[in-house]
Design a protein around this nucleic acid. Structure first.
Length: 600
RNA sequence: CGGGAUGUAGCGCAGCUUGGUAGCGCACUUCGUUCGGGACGAAGGGGCCGCAGGUUCGAAUCCUGUCAUCCCGACCA
């Protein structure tokens, strides 16, 4: 390909809309253009990258025995109603784009394909003899993200590889999960990414075991906690840990303390010399369930800990979905939701806040669901709000003075410095990550809902065991930029670079240079190298800057030395350069490329 | 949805406080010089100043509304 014919439009200034390096660089280097919020056009260079990533994904998926398919993006609401996800995905904070056709039939634009694939499986799979089977596809997905951001990182339309497997037993599903985990490791390694497999929350997809693959990068949206020896790594949403011990509170008996305007843990500690771990803070939320119940929730936490809403949501879903339908949302209780907000002394609330504050608020249930984190319940003696403005209690104890001990759960965020559960002497450290893949053992959630059954060896009918496995292809490509760039621009890993080599003609006015460059370009092309020829009538500096910005791994410069048969070879990563005879450099280049294509 | 900010040429920005009919850099076109690290000079093209109302003799500028985009939280590949 000749640069003169590439429609290469690079920008000298950073577009104002881009915050993180990868987003800025992809815009500046002419890889993507924003069409609407969270919706991007993949320009020719980007499409080459995406096709290379897809090719690697295909090879590895095919190697596991998975079959490629292409499922519809327009999906009938009926399928989603059968799995029970239609309401959650379309109402309120739901993320599914949905519409009506001319017959007023409801349709959704696929954010994922569990329903469609399970319905197909119910149709196609009859006998254990057909199992196991896995299907995958690579296509655009649609999610009406609450907040699209960072370019391709969180788009509303994005390219995803999703795979679904069907098994006759939980054991075989677990086996496939292991196969996929290994395949994912190879995919990310081959793409030149440093990725880490971590234990994860299963979220809206559901299911039991799940692992996320994180590309470590400062701009990552997730926090990962891991032990130094690598034996444990988990997303903070999921991570469990042993909290650092609380400082013992010395108090003979429970007394009232005047705390004027000290409504925060910090103010309380500053004014009275407490340690945050000696205080119990109370968080009020409202959990909304499918059947319309708006349940006030009161959570007690140790003052130095943070509420983990994912863990709390999961606990609520698990304990109450049976009675009240699935949990739709969990939000802070706003004073404005109460009939009389003056009863709510925010900042001075204790675990025994009376249900009376809810009185006269017909849209809410009349009593709190009271929960506490283990670390809060483990305190023998603590400071907490007195349920009256500007007053706290010191030396309070569970079970005394009406402080009934609520149900204890793990609803706190694991923190850097906490102990490892299995070996508390080891501490956890944290880093940020971009989630590029997620694999789930779904179990029978969808097969039961959609009645996807098969006949087992004993001749009995049973629901299929399912797994699902996703890779954010477009996100992965941007994550690669996030991990591989410098001041001058992108530094693509060879296996996913849009082109492997750019031959730069320093001056197109010099016939000797043009001739030699054309010869080298043809030779590289003939030997199967993805090569660009920068034949533009531009100054050499412009071509060098552009080559660096768009991140081509190798640059072969045909310039001043051309007449004497000398060219220059520069590697983008590290900027090492050497002069030499074309034949010698070409041989070295081809050899090195062979290795780099394999990710070596 | 809550909090914060911004909409002026393809991109980056100034002008707005104190109203008088739009400017700078990059990019683009033509000519000349230059030619291995985003050249220089000359000449040019391109803007319902996000949109709608209002105030005013007069609005990019003041007021009201609205839409869009970005950032911080809830969502996730």
């Amino acid at each position: 390909m000749r640069v003169s014919a590439l429609l290469l439009v690079t920008l000298r200034d950073d577009p104002a809309e881009a915050e993180i390096p990868s987003h800025r660089l992809l815009l500046r280097a002419g890889y993507i253009r924003r069409v609407a919020s969270g919706i991007y056009a993949y320009l020719p260079l980007m499409w080459r990258v995406l096709r290379k990533v897809s090719a690697i994904v295909r090879e590895e998926m095919d190697a596991t025995g998975a079959l490629e398919t292409l499922l519809p993006q327009l999906q009938p609401a009926e399928l989603w109603q059968r799995s029970g996800r239609w309401a959650g995905y379309t109402a309120g904070e739901g993320i599914m784009f949905h519409l009506q056709d001319r017959q007023e039939r409801e349709l959704g634009l696929g954010p994922t394909h569990e329903e469609v694939i399970t319905a197909l499986a119910a149709d196609l799979l009859r006998s254990y003899r057909q199992l196991p089977v896995s299907l995958y596809q690579i296509q655009s997905k649609f999610r009406d993200e609450i907040r699209p951001r960072f370019g391709l990182m969180r788009g509303r339309e994005f390219i995803m590889k999703d795979a679904y497997s069907f098994h006759a037993s939980a054991e075989d599903l677990a086996r496939e999960f292991g196969v996929m985990e290994k395949a994912y490791g190879r995919i990310f390694r081959r793409c030149g990414l440093q990725a880490l497999a971590v234990e994860a929350d299963s979220g809206a997809i559901g299911g039991s075991a799940s692992k996320e693959f994180m590309v470590t990068a400062a701009a990552g949206e997730d926090l990962i906690l891991r032990s130094a020896d690598g034996s444990y790594a988990a997303n903070q949403e999921r991570a469990e840990s042993v909290a650092q011990p609380a400082l013992a509170l010395e108090a003979e008996r429970c007394t009232l303390l005047e705390t004027p305007a000290q409504g925060t843990i910090e103010a309380l500690c500053d004014a009275h010399g407490f340690h945050p771990s000696q205080i119990i803070k109370v968080i009020l939320l409202v959990a909304r369930f499918e059947q319309g119940r708006a349940q006030p929730v009161l959570v007690s936490l140790r003052g130095d800990q943070q509420l983990n809403e994912v863990k709390l949501s999961n606990a609520l879903q698990q304990d109450h979905a049976q009675d009240w339908g699935s949990l739709l949302s969990l939000q802070a209780l706003e004073a404005t939701q109460l009939a009389d907000a003056s009863y709510l002394p925010l900042g001075f609330i204790g675990p025994d806040l009376g249900d009376a504050v809810l009185r006269g608020s017909p849209q809410l249930e009349s009593s709190f669901l009271r929960l506490a984190d283990h670390t809060a319940l483990a305190l023998d003696c603590f400071v907490c709000g007195a349920n009256r403005a500007d007053q706290h209690r010191v030396g309070a104890q569970w079970g005394q003075h009406g402080l009934a001990a609520p149900m204890a759960l793990d609803v706190r965020c694991a923190l850097e410095g906490d102990g490892l559960i299995d070996e508390p002497t080891q501490t956890l450290c944290s880093s940020r990550g971009i989630e590029v893949g997620h694999i789930f053992q779904l179990g029978r959630k969808y097969s039961e809902a959609l009645d996807a059954r098969f006949t087992n060896e004993q001749g009995r009918d049973e629901a299929l065991w399912m797994g699902c496995y996703g890779i954010g292809v477009s996100r992965l490509a941007q994550a690669a930029v996030e991990q591989h760039h410098d001041e001058a621009g992108i530094v693509w890993p060879v296996p996913i670079a849009p082109f492997e080599v750019v031959v730069v003609i320093a001056s197109t006015k010099e016939p000797v240079q043009v001739e030699l460059a054309e010869r080298l370009y043809s030779e590289l092309k003939a030997s199967g190298v993805d090569v660009l020829l920068d034949d533009r009538n531009e100054r050499a500096g412009v071509k060098f800057k552009d080559a660096e910005l768009i991140g081509i791994p190798w640059r072969l410069v045909v310039g001043r030395g051309a007449a004497e048969g000398v060219v220059e070879l520069v590697e983008r990563a590290g900027n090492a350069r050497r002069d030499g005879a074309p034949a010698e450099l070409m041989a070295a280049l081809k050899e090195r490329l062979q290795q780099q294509r394999l990710g070596l």
